[in-house]
């Protein structure tokens, strides 16, 4: 057993105590096992599950859940929650699209979306720290505000005609090799690595670095562990929380870009209930809703579990209603495990 602890420590879990690391290690192991069982089960149930096309679809779905999940992990570690990310995603995507339509080039236009998300997150943070509104209520309010704004400024109609460049982020891939057939149609020889997956990887590494190696990360853990103790120790807990919520909003904005780019259309009604998938991903990955605990790598595994679960149920012809029921039970189960751990 002590050997197992050692492994996790060498794995770069500096600053996180050994005993806690060992529990996370067990939980991590069971999460990975679940992931493999899901893949195995679904590939037996549906021959297309492991096809190249479907794998790409899973990667895309997972990258949206994963980006949201990373932001939520930071918020959850501070002991908070962010229910607004699904709506902020929609508002941000709409803002990016409007920027493109107004003639701004794609990259700065997409930054408009990310900034919109960050502004929503910052607003959440200010409401929570300055007005002392509980995170649950504050972000529930933002959930309505952002969704309402997205619907209002678009007149509830999708924005299309965004051009090829706008679709590049969601549909393009690195190292994709295509060949033009004699009949004029291109065929894909090697599908490449989708940009959203690369984006997710980069953001995940960046977030893990922030949480593990930077002072702000240490303060995020301390704030969630014992807010008053952190404050007495000189941690600016309000600023720390503001940072986490702003980050969560910005990442919701980024995932809004990915999703709308994928559709090459800005849908103001996209992303409903995505916050639940993202929360589930974080909690399955070991983040504790009572704060102080959570890892990016865990959330990534959680995001894949949710992404594969949704996709696999789809492929196996399970109805959308049954899917909701299954995911609902998964969320309750994950939180239940979290409760058991806290009682330990």
């Amino acid at each position: 057993m002590p050997e197992a602890w050692r492994i996790t420590r060498i794995g770069g879990r500096a600053g996180l105590p050994d005993a806690q690391a060992s529990f996370l290690y067990m939980q991590r192991l069971s999460a990975i096992l679940t992931l493999f069982l899901l893949i195995l089960g679904f590939s037996l149930a549906s021959p297309h599950f492991l096809s190249v096309n479907n794998t790409l679809t899973v990667l895309l779905q997972t990258s949206v859940i994963g980006l949201l999940g990373i932001g939520l992990t930071m918020v959850i570690i501070t002991g908070g929650i962010d229910l607004s990310v699904g709506s902020v995603l929609a508002l941000s995507g709409v803002m990016s699209a409007l920027a493109v339509r107004s003639g701004i080039p794609v990259v700065p236009a997409m930054s408009v979306g990310v900034l919109t998300g960050a502004a929503c997150g910052g607003f959440n943070g200010i409401v929570i720290t300055k007005l002392r509104i509980p995170p649950f209520v504050a972000t529930l309010g933002m959930m309505l505000i952002a969704r309402g704004l997205a619907l209002q400024i678009t007149g509830a109609a999708p924005i299309s005609g965004l051009g090829r460049a706008f679709g590049q982020l969601g549909n393009g891939a690195l190292f994709r090799i295509t060949e033009t057939q004699p009949n004029g149609f291109p065929t894909v020889i090697f599908p490449g690595i989708p940009y959203p997956a690369i984006l997710l990887l980069i953001v995940a590494i960046g977030a893990a670095y922030l949480l593990r190696r930077r002072q702000i990360g240490r303060h995020i853990y301390a704030t969630g562990s014992n807010e008053e103790a952190a404050r007495l120790s000189g941690v600016r807990t309000d600023r720390t929380k503001l940072y986490a919520y702003t980050m969560s909003g910005a990442l919701a904005g980024l995932s809004g870009n990915v999703l709308m780019s994928r559709l090459v259309t800005a849908q103001p009604s996209e992303g409903v209930m995505y916050e639940l998938d993202a929360i589930a991903a974080a909690v399955i990955g070991g983040a504790s809703l009572s704060g102080g605990v959570g890892t990016i790598s865990g959330t990534m595994i959680g995001a894949f579990i949710i992404g594969i679960l949704r996709n696999g149920l789809n492929m196996s012809g399970v109805s959308a209603f049954i899917q909701q029921i299954v995911i609902g039970f998964v969320v309750i189960g994950a939180v239940w495990i979290d409760q058991m751990r806290n009682r330990n």
Binding site: G15, L16, N226, A229, S233
Partner: peptide, 27 residues
């Protein structure tokens, strides 16, 4: 109340709020 962050270890608590950093600003 001691004002310790329960999930962190002793060194992290000892330096909480005034962490030592490397040249690159890492912990």
């Amino acid at each position: 109340t001691l004002a310790l962050a329960d999930h962190l270890d002793a060194p992290a608590n000892l330096f909480l709020g005034r962490e030592l950093k490397t040249r690159f600003g890492n912990l």
